[in-house]
């Protein structure tokens, strides 16, 4: 069964509405991280700023998250069979869980070296930024899991491509936010 062939105007309009809502929400997330960035830049100018030596694992985590975006795209590509879509989205879920585990591991690596949340402003930002991003990703993971269930059960075939499109929009967005945060923490 191919998953992206049914068109229904009413369904399209309903999902268009949701798409508008999602993009507006992502706008608020941009503003949230913009505010954190601004605070980061201001606080970094303080004399007590000691850069955090980022655990190398974070780079591997980034590759995992990027890979999850890739598998999600593979799963929702036009012409993909239901089985291929299920497999690719299951892989996305697996990679997402791996990313979460990796982030927790990175936290514990830092903690083992004596760098805790209140140690210095740089470490405070590291834990909070990764935490806030992780919180967003956990919510997005809920939608990803829902997409997986819908893909396996093959219900609402007409709405599936739209749902997959929205979930991927959010997921890719959060992947991009992570890459941005990592570069900011590493370079800025």
């Amino acid at each position: 069964m191919s998953v992206a062939i049914v068109f229904d105007r009413e369904v399209a309009e309903r999902w268009h509405l949701r798409e508008v809502g999602v993009w507006m929400f992502l706008g608020t997330v941009v503003m949230l991280f913009a505010a954190f960035t601004s605070a980061y830049v201001v606080r970094k100018s303080g004399a007590d700023w000691v850069p955090v030596h980022l655990p190398p694992l974070l780079w591997l985590n980034s590759v995992v998250l990027l890979a999850s975006s890739l598998t999600l795209e593979l799963g929702r590509r036009p012409g993909a069979t239901a089985r291929a879509a299920s497999t690719a989205i299951a892989a996305t879920c697996g990679l997402a869980l791996l990313f979460f585990a990796g982030q927790v591991q990175a936290w514990s690596t830092l903690a083992r070296t004596g760098v805790y949340l209140p140690t210095n402003p740089a470490s405070s930002f590291f834990y909070i930024l990764t935490g806030v991003h992780g919180a967003h990703l956990i919510v997005a993971f809920g939608f990803l899991a829902y997409l997986f269930v819908r893909t396996v059960r093959r219900t609402d075939v007409a709405g599936w491509p739209y749902l997959a499109g929205l979930v991927s929009t959010v997921w890719h967005f959060l992947t991009a936010v992570w890459i941005y945060l990592l570069l900011m923490l590493r370079l800025a």
Partner: peptide, 21 residues
């Protein structure tokens, strides 16, 4: 509103987890 959310998160950490934002 999101910038206030960011500020409130940092304030909460200053209050309860000894950070120094």
């Amino acid at each position: 509103f999101p910038p206030l959310t960011a500020a409130a998160i940092m304030l909460l950490f200053d209050r309860h987890f000894d950070t120094s934002f």
